[in-house]
Computed example of a mutant assay.
Amino acid sequence: MALVGQKAPEFEVQAYDPVNKKYVNVKLSDYVPNTEGKFLVLCFYPADFTYV
């Protein structure tokens, strides 16, 4: 479980790239450098026009 103030667990998910119009694999390590003291905000939401 990820908690505020703690490191997020490493993950890999499939995401849609609207620029290239294809699905790509996204990893946390793609966005977080190996330096301490940096913050990253991740926001997830369902695709537009989907029923929630």
Rank of each mutant, 00 (worst) to 15 (best):
Q14E: 13
E36G: 07
N34S: 12
K38H: 10
C43F: 12
N25E: 05
Y31K: 04
G5Y: 05
E36I: 08
A2L: 06
N20G: 07
Y51K: 15
S29C: 11
A8Y: 07
K27R: 15
N20K: 15
T50S: 15
A2G: 09
E10Y: 04
N25Y: 09
V13Q: 04
P33S: 15
A47T: 10
N20D: 10
P46D: 10
K21S: 15
Y16G: 03
E12D: 01
M1T: 11
N34F: 01
N25P: 01
E10H: 11
V4F: 06
P46L: 10
Y45V: 05
V41P: 00
K7V: 03
F49P: 00
M1A: 08
S29D: 14
Y45W: 08
P9F: 06
Q14D: 02
D48N: 08
C43K: 12
A2N: 07
F11K: 07
V24P: 04
Q6W: 01
A8N: 08
D48S: 11
Q6E: 14
D48M: 06
Y45H: 12
V41D: 04
D48C: 06
K22F: 01
P9S: 10
V26H: 01
V19H: 03
L40R: 06
Q14Y: 00
K21Y: 02
Q6D: 09
P33D: 15
V4S: 09
P33V: 01
L3T: 09
M1Q: 07
A2K: 02
G5M: 02
P46H: 14
